[in-house]
């Protein structure tokens, strides 16, 4: 069959849609669900702009088919925060000028958030580990340093909160 019905959960909401089976997950999110926060850069898995989470794991949505999201949970950048209530990571990107044109930013945010969601609150990363973690995302504006600075700030805040949190 060249079309198929997909039942998927995106950012907590359930959707049932009939799609061409050759539709990428990225195109489905953008054109089928009007979630245009997921950006399509290279369409062959090199740039990372289209990164979304599939059941919590960061994946390239241009290299997945929409039908492969059937019965799975997809999280896009739209779920991280809103213009009125930025997530800690989004706020840090803004504070540290970790974006200029912003095209790659959703991919960076979604990738980094997948790590933050998994890691214990006092987790830390060496510069090498952090650069390795974000190596699958390309940015042509910032030279990456401000992105590293932004993530560092989030890690520092998380560690400080973890230290202050009452132990049970």
């Amino acid at each position: 069959m060249k079309t198929m019905t997909v039942n998927t959960t995106v950012n907590g909401a359930s959707f049932e849609r009939t799609v061409d089976v050759r539709t990428s997950l990225a195109d489905f999110l953008r054109h089928g669900l009007c979630l245009t926060g997921t950006h399509v850069g290279c369409e062959h898995g090199a740039c990372g702009a289209c990164t979304v989470q599939l059941d919590g794991a960061a994946v390239r949505s241009c290299l997945m088919l929409a039908v492969q999201a059937d019965s799975r949970k997809v999280t896009t950048v739209e779920a991280l925060g809103s213009p009125d209530a930025l997530s800690a990571l989004q706020k840090a990107f803004s504070d540290h000028h970790a974006l200029q044109c912003g095209f790659c930013t959703p991919g960076f945010l979604v990738t980094m958030q997948s790590w933050l969601d998994e890691a214990p609150p006092d987790a830390t990363l060496t510069d090498e580990q952090l650069r390795d973690l974000l190596s699958g995302n390309m940015c042509r504006c910032t030279g990456y340093q401000n992105i590293i600075d932004a993530v560092r700030a989030v890690l520092r805040d998380r560690q400080a909160s973890a230290r202050l949190a009452p132990t049970t």
Binding site: G45, G48, T51, L54, A57, A58, V59, R60, L63, M64, T111, S114, W115, L133, S135, G136
Partner: peptide
């Protein structure tokens, strides 16, 4: 081998 996103798949 690749990156976090590609190793996940």
């Amino acid at each position: 081998v690749g990156h976090l996103q590609t190793r996940n798949r």
